[in-house]
Simulated assay, not measured.
Amino acid sequence: MLFNFLVPLSDDFFVFNLFRYLTFRSGGAVITALVISFILGPRIISWLKSKQGEGQPIREDGPEGHLLTKKGTPTMGGFLILIAITVSTLLWADLTNGYVWSVLLVTGGFGMIGFVDDYLKLTQRNTKGLPGRVKLIAQIIIGAAATFWVMQLSPDTMATHLAVPFFKSLLINLTWFFLPFAILVMVGSSNAVNLTDGLDGLAIVPVMIAAVCFALIAYLVGNSVFAEYLQLHFVPGSGELAVFCAALVGASLGFLWFNAPPAMVFMGDTGSLSMGGALGSIAVVTKHELVLAIIGGLFVLETVSVIVQVASFKLTGKRVFRMAPLHHHFEKKGWAEPTIVIRFWIIAMILAIVGLATLKLR
C-alpha cells in the first residue's frame, strides 16, 4: 500500500524513493509484523484463554508428560501470525503484484481450513477435528485456484516448467502434470509443517529459517541482474514475495516470544497449515519446489517418519519408531523437550545452508 501511494510522489518528495527498494520495504515488513505480534499477542492470548477454557485437547496416546505440562494451553495462536503477516504485507508490498495476492490466497485459505479444524477440536473436545478427507479436498481446491493464477502470471516459457537444482539451464516441461505437482507441493508443505508442530517452538523456528531463505531466493530470481549472474531462472515480479517472506519472518519471531517453552499459546492448525501452504506457494512461484524439499528437510523427515510408521504397522504389525512423528520418538526415548527442539533447529539450519548452496552450485 505504501509503495502504491508514496512512490508516485517521489518526484516531489525525494525521501519516498526509499519505497522503491525491496530491501527497505522488506525491513519495514519484518519490523511491522514483529510490533503487531508484540502488541496484539497478550490480548489475543487472553481472549483465547477466556473462550477455550481447558485449552487444546491433548492426545491421550501421546507422551505422558503432555497431559501435565500442556493441558490448559490455548490454541489458535495462528490467528496472531495471520494478522501480522497480512497487515504487514498489505502495508509494504506492491498490491498490483499478482504473485503477492496468490500467496495470500493460499495462506488465508489454508488458515481458514485450520481454523475450522481447531474449532471442531475445541467444541467436540477431541483431537480429530475436521475429517482428513474434507480437509484435503479443501486444500486441493485452494491450491488448484492458486496454481492456475500463478500459471497465468508466469512467462509462457516457465508457466508449467520445473527447474532442477544444480543444472543451470534445465527446465522440464510438465505440461498438464504441473497442476497436480504444484498442488502436491502446497498441500504437502502445509501438512508437513502441521505434523512438525508438536512441541513448544519446534515448528515456528524452521518456518522462520525457511522464510529467510525464500526471501533471498525470491529477491534473486526476481532480479534479472542477479538471476543472470547466478544462472538462475528469472521470474519477473517474483521479487515482491521477499516482502511477504519478511513479514512471515517478523510474525514468526513475534509468535516465538509467546510460544517459547513453556508455551503460552499453540499455533494450532490455523497457523501450521497456513504457514506451510505459504512456503509451498512461494516455492511454486519462484520455481524452487525441489529446493524447498531441502530447505524444509526437517518437515520432510517428520512426514516420512509418519509414513514409514503407518506403512510398517499395516504391513508387518510392527512399529519402526516408538511414536511418530519423529520428535515424539525421541520424547519416548527420554530426551528432554528443549533438547529435541534445539537439536531439530540445528538440523533445520544445516539443511537451509545446503539448500541455499544450490543457488551457486550449478
Rank of each mutant, 00 (worst) to 15 (best):
L2E: 01
L2W: 00
F3G: 06
F5K: 10
V7Q: 07
S10G: 00
D12A: 12
F13I: 14
F24G: 05
R25P: 03
I31T: 11
T32Q: 03
V35A: 07
F38M: 15
P42H: 05
R43C: 10
I45W: 03
S50P: 13
K51M: 10
Q52C: 04
E60P: 05
D61N: 01
G62D: 01
E64R: 07
E64M: 12
G65S: 01
G65W: 01
L67I: 00
G77D: 10
G78A: 00
A84V: 03
I85A: 10
T86A: 01
L91W: 01
L104H: 05
T107Y: 11
I113K: 02
G114W: 00
D117C: 04
D117K: 05
K121M: 00
N126R: 03
N126V: 04
T127C: 02
K128V: 14
G129S: 10
L130P: 08
P131T: 02
G132R: 00
G132C: 07
G132D: 02
V134E: 09
V134Q: 10
I142P: 02
G143A: 11
F148N: 13
W149P: 07
M151Y: 15
M151W: 14
M151K: 11
Q152N: 13
P155F: 06
P155A: 09
T157A: 09
A159Y: 15
T160I: 11
A163I: 14
V164I: 13
L170W: 13
F177S: 02
F177Q: 04
F178R: 00
P180V: 09
F181I: 08
A182R: 02
I183P: 11
L184T: 14
V187D: 08
T196Q: 03
G201A: 09
V205E: 12
P206R: 09
I209W: 12
A210V: 11
C213S: 15
F214R: 12
L216N: 11
G222I: 04
S224R: 01
F226R: 14
F226D: 12
Y229K: 14
Q231K: 15
L232K: 09
H233Y: 15
S238C: 05
V243S: 01
S252W: 13
F258R: 07
F258C: 04
N259K: 00
P262F: 03
A263R: 01
A278I: 10
L279V: 05
S281D: 07
I282D: 00
A283C: 11
L290V: 10
V291F: 00
V291H: 07
L292D: 13
I294Q: 07
I294L: 15
G296E: 01
G296S: 05
L301H: 08
V304R: 11
V308K: 07
A311N: 12
F313G: 04
L315R: 08
R319P: 05
V320K: 12
M323F: 02
A324G: 06
P325W: 06
K333Q: 14
K333L: 15
A336K: 14
R343F: 12
I350Q: 05
A352Q: 00
V354Y: 14
L356Y: 04
A357S: 12
A357I: 13
L359Y: 03
L359G: 00
L361M: 14
